[in-house]
Structures are given as C-alpha cells and as structure tokens.
Amino acid sequence: MTPDLFPETVGDLALGDGAMVLRGFALAIDADLLAAIDQVTAAAPFRHLVTPGGLRMSVAMTNCGTVGWVSDRRGYRYDPVDPDSGRPWPAMPALFAGLAARAAQAAGYAGFAPDACLINRYAPGTRLTLHQDRDERDYMAPIVSVSLGLPATFLFGGGERRDRPRRVPLAHGDVVVWGGPTRLAFHGVAPLAEGLHPLTGRLRLNLTFRRAR
C-alpha cells in the first residue's frame, strides 16, 4: 500500500498532552455555522482591533456570548459590551455552544460551556502571531477552535515563546481542542495563502470558544 503523502491531514491528530485536532468535526453543519456568523456580524460587524502598543491587528474580529474579547490602548480584556456599539454582544447561537461542547467532550473535556466566542476573519496574507490565551479568569476549561473556509497552517508550540511550534495543516471543518497541560501553549496562524473556497471565497473564518468568567 502506498503511504499517505500527507498523514497529518487524515484522521484525528494528537498535538500533545490534552490537545487534539478533530478532522472534519464541523463539516456536517458548516453552512449553518456560516449563516449564524452572518447573523452575529450583522449586529456586531468585524473590526480591526488595536494592540496596547498601538498596532492595528491584521485579523478582523468580532464576538458573541455574554462577554467578548477586546483590545485597545488600555490592554487586553473581556467586556460584556461591544465598544463600537455600546450594546451587549450578540447572544451566542445555540448551534455554536453545542458544537463547542461536543468537540470538547470528544477531546476528553466533558461539560464545557463557553461564555465567549471570538470570531476571526482572515484574508490572504493575514497571520496571527504566537500568543497564549491567558485573559480568562482560570485555565480549567479548554479552548475550542473551529476552522471554516480556506485552509490554514496552525502553529502549536510549547509553554515558552521560544519553543519551536509544530506546523499543523487545518482544513474547512476541522476543530482543534487544547487544555490541561497544554492550555497555555503558544499558538498562532501562519500567513494565509491565496485561494478560493466555495463557501467563503477568499476568506478563512475561525470560531474560538472560551470560558472567560
């Protein structure tokens, strides 16, 4: 038998202790997820946040849930109010919360109930630098990340920024879950390559579910 030329794109993949890629886990509801994203962004449009140092982020972002992740000159934080509208963030669709809970359970984290969903929009050339998700009040709950649209290279490192990250190809419908010993792993996304997806066009959309409070 001819060996698979791209073994990391076939079947679920363990990334480390407590971290897993669930291949195609969201495919069955992809169109519904995209429709729900459209509803969220109609109420809370994508925007490019500014870092505390004054740099404009290349990834466009918005949120849904009881709190949303924001960044500005005052720092990184969760806020129940959309600073652009002055209104609460749109409620998290039940479809989102259900998917996040099922994916977390499949990766070994039963009972996950996210209260925040950060929605990222990537265009070709956009990247996300290595960082830790550490603005949550505790780190007991996992992170659940859903990929939609153009394929991307996920960078998954260790507990120190200097640790060389693993390069993991992600396709439309893949879900990454990490927690426990890898909850504070540095991670990011390599610059998005040009492409055209039948559902999202020249874009990649990512849903990141967290228990912030």
Rank of each mutant, 00 (worst) to 15 (best):
T2L: 13
T2K: 11
L5Q: 13
F6A: 10
F6L: 13
F6M: 12
E8Y: 08
V10N: 10
G11E: 11
G16A: 08
G16E: 06
R23N: 05
R23T: 13
R23F: 06
I29R: 15
A31I: 08
D32L: 10
D32N: 05
L33A: 07
L34K: 08
A35P: 02
I37Y: 03
D38N: 12
Q39M: 15
A44P: 12
F46P: 06
R47T: 15
L49Q: 14
L49F: 11
T51W: 00
G53K: 13
M57A: 05
V59Y: 02
V59H: 04
A60N: 12
A60S: 15
G65C: 12
V67E: 06
S71W: 00
R74C: 00
G75E: 00
Y76T: 00
R77D: 00
D79E: 13
P88D: 10
P90D: 10
M92I: 11
P93N: 07
F96I: 05
F96H: 03
G98T: 11
A100E: 06
R102M: 11
R102F: 03
A104W: 07
A104I: 09
A104V: 15
A107V: 12
G108V: 13
A110V: 12
F112A: 08
A113T: 15
P114E: 06
L118S: 05
R121C: 15
R121T: 08
Y122E: 09
Y122W: 14
A123K: 14
A123R: 15
A123L: 14
G125F: 14
L130V: 08
L130C: 07
Q132F: 00
D133L: 02
D135G: 01
E136G: 00
E136W: 00
E136F: 00
D138W: 02
D138N: 14
Y139I: 02
A141V: 04
P142L: 04
P142H: 04
I143D: 01
I143P: 02
V144K: 02
S145K: 02
S147T: 04
G149R: 09
L150H: 09
L150N: 09
P151V: 05
T153A: 01
L155W: 00
F156H: 02
G157M: 05
G158M: 05
R161N: 04
P165K: 12
R166H: 00
R167K: 14
V168S: 00
V168L: 01
P169M: 03
L170D: 01
G173V: 09
V177M: 06
G179V: 04
G180P: 09
G180L: 03
P181E: 13
T182F: 01
L184P: 04
F186G: 02
H187R: 00
G188C: 12
A190D: 13
G195Y: 07
P198I: 04
T200F: 09
N206D: 03
T208L: 04
F209V: 03
R211P: 01
R213Y: 06
